[in-house]
Write a protein that binds this DNA or RNA. Structure first.
Length: 607
RNA sequence: GGGCGUGUGGCCUAGCGGAUAAGGCGAGAGGUUCCUAACCUCUCGAUCCCGGGUUCAAAUCCCGGCACGCCCGCCA
């Protein structure tokens, strides 16, 4: 609704300015501050004051009186407040918002007819996923969902490093060391089991004498040569380690949940010959040069000082070389590619982009988006060194603390809905994991996060449970009125449905969306205005790849709902008003549920 | 040393050219015979890192500092 309202405001303003022979290049459309009783405003008058030779407030009223709202459906009135033009919406705006948000799939934008592959996480399969890495799946999954809701055809890929030096080292260590030399695994799972060999291998190479180290290096080197040559035996040796560790890591990621359409292995681009072909094409390019036996690209034209080595002097390819083949493959199969990367990858990403351009690809089809680290107060996290908090531990702790909260609240609970054991587990999981995800996705990815248990697991205030609670309250009211729809009727079939939201199917609500007139309190209007903005919020978040703005929005809806909840009784209202308010509650519920869905946070029907 | 990013009340965070800088945590005071108090209301608290500049208008843009993070490998 808001998107169309904004378009109408732009149209009428542009026409008014044209008829006054004023420039229409910058309309100055903006959202006014809270205390201004308008949904949209313009500050054009400031810019035109010089040209008109009149003070801004006077220009504003001249423009305002030139504006014609006769053709406009959603604009009711234009007024001025000093230099500002303020736009008020019509009854139709509120009525159509109530109707649109009455749909379970409210917020979904028209299909874009554009396929997008989003690569995220892609952590090296060397050991359990730790919290330092957790920002990648959480942000990546939220971006995927947001793009899906915004109408794109989304595929999520995890790019598996099964060809690098670290992996060869890992495989060698796994084949070399005996279990009896290792500490007990932290969990009975493949990633926790095997990471011990990885750590052992690394520490061995750091401390071994020259002779032993050279011997080990030779074995690792031989394995890498085997992979480069596409030998099946080398591939199978590596796969034995990689597949098992990756399987364990997936178990962690699935808890978030972060799932993928495809796990794309690096070796695929060695075995099919495409990496070799890339090397040949790059060698032919005018940017290529040979330096001590290795091949590199001079990227000075792209303001990149460091030459980009794409072939080692021993003839093996590098990660980035294979990634070039990988990206050409993405371009062949999708319209656009998005990659979510840690900030340490920035240089690599710009080199990749330049090299893709040298290979005659359109670099605009690739967008890389970066996030900063999640660090511990005492420093960074590392799989190799075994420092850091495992994602599993964080999720376990989050769920346990959430469970305590639910149990503590059981006694003082007013609502008589008899939560049983399975409800307790469900709520603990939804709230605990939701809180972790929300805490991470709500922040601008450019800002570094210092991980602190108490802050990450605060269930009050600006947190997932605050928003989830609003959803549960709305569901409580709807259930009481017999209007709770079945959640399994998931409109978002493209990506998997949220865990734990499936309840028994109930009849679709039949709310009276025409009784908008009954909703005349400021709280009801403010809630509708907030709900109306949701599609615009999705659009902007998808365009800019900024899911944190959706988190900010969920808080705004939640606050507006709580104000409404406080001032406007629903079930005890007179019949006609009750119907209208039930429609509003359903609209708010869909908005909150779908916004949370974008973030990958569960929307509980009770808690 | 060079490059990229970040600096907002004691702490965390939103805002990133326009109307008195918006919330949370914290501290203090209230609110439940009434749809879930994981809630709400009120009070306290900010030279938006520092110094210049551009603009009618700067937390927001530009330049110069300072602090912190990340990168600068024939690693990924």
């Amino acid at each position: 609704m808001f998107i169309r309202l904004r378009e109408e405001a732009e149209d009428v303003l542009r026409e008014a300015l044209s008829s006054l022979s004023l420039p229409t290049t910058d309309l100055g459309i903006e959202e006014p501050p809270e205390n201004v009783p308008a949904v949209l405003a313009s500050s054009v008058a400031f810019r035109l004051a010089g040209e008109r030779g009149a003070p801004p407030p006077q220009v504003a009223s001249e423009v305002a009186s030139e504006i014609d709202l006769a053709e406009s459906d959603y604009l009711e009135e234009v007024s001025t407040q000093g230099p500002y033009l303020n736009f008020m919406p019509s009854e139709a705006y509120y009525a159509d918002t109530l109707e649109a948000a009455g749909e379970r799939g409210y917020g979904r934008l028209p299909a874009q007819d554009e396929s997008v592959v989003i690569e995220h996480t892609s952590a090296n399969p060397t050991g359990p996923v730790h919290v330092g890495r957790a920002r990648n799946p959480i942000v990546g999954d939220a971006i995927s969902r947001t793009l899906d809701l915004a109408g794109y055809d989304v595929a999520r890929h995890y790019y598996v490093n099964d060809a690098g030096r670290q992996i060869a080292l890992f495989t060698w260590a796994y084949e070399t060391f005996a279990e009896s030399d290792l500490p007990a695994p932290e969990r009975d799972r493949a990633d926790y089991d095997l990471v011990r060999y990885y750590r052992k291998g690394n520490s061995f190479l750091e401390t071994a004498n020259d002779e032993a180290r050279e011997e080990a290096e030779a074995e690792i080197e031989a394995l890498m040569q085997g992979l480069e040559a596409g030998e099946t035996e080398a591939y199978e040796r590596v796969s034995r380690v990689v597949d098992r560790v990756l399987g364990g890591m997936q178990t962690s990621l699935n808890r978030l949940p972060a799932t993928f359409e495809e796990f794309v292995k690096e070796t695929r681009f060695m075995r099919d010959g495409s990496t070799e072909a890339i090397v040949a094409r790059l060698e032919d390019s005018s940017y290529a040069e040979r330096e001590e036996g290795a091949w590199q690209l001079d990227l000075a034209e792209w303001d990149i000082e460091k030459p980009f080595v794409f072939l080692r002097s021993d003839g093996t390819s590098l990660y980035t070389t294979r990634d070039l083949a990988h990206h050409e493959w993405k371009f062949a199969n999708f319209d656009r590619a998005i990659t979510v990367l840690g900030e340490d990858q920035k240089l690599h990403a710009s080199q990749l982009e330049a090299a893709l351009e040298i290979l005659s690809n359109d670099p605009d089809r690739l967008t890389s988006t970066f996030y900063s680290w999640v660090n511990l107060p005492e420093g960074g996290m590392s799989t190799r060194e075994g420092t850091g908090v495992d994602l599993d531990d964080l999720l376990d702790e989050a769920t346990a603390r959430a469970r305590e909260e639910v149990e503590d609240r059981l006694d003082s609970r007013i609502r008589d809905d008899d939560l049983d054991e399975s409800d307790l587990s469900r709520i603990a999981r939804q709230v605990g994991i939701g809180a972790v995800r929300y805490d991470i996705v709500a922040k601008q990815p450019t800002k570094a996060i210092t991980f602190e248990w108490d802050r990450a697991l605060d269930f009050e205030a600006q947190s997932a449970p605050y928003v989830q609670y609003v959803h549960a309250r709305a569901c409580g009211i709807l259930a009481e009125a017999g209007r709770l729809e079945g959640s399994e009727r998931d409109p978002f079939a493209a990506l998997e449905s949220m865990p734990g939201t499936g309840e028994d199917g109930r009849a679709e609500s039949s709310v009276d969306t025409e009784a908008i007139d009954a909703l005349d309190t400021s709280e009801e209007r403010a809630l509708l205005e907030t709900i109306a903005r949701f599609p615009a919020v999705v659009e902007t978040a998808a365009e800019n790849l900024t899911p944190h703005t959706i988190a900010t929005y969920t808080r705004e809806v939640a606050e507006a709902f709580n104000a409404f909840y406080r001032e406007c009784p629903v079930l005890d209202a007179p019949e006609e008003l009750k119907e209208s308010r039930l429609a509003l509650v359903a609209a708010a519920r869909h908005t909150v549920a779908n916004a949370l869905w974008c973030l990958g946070v569960a929307a509980p029907e009770s808690m």
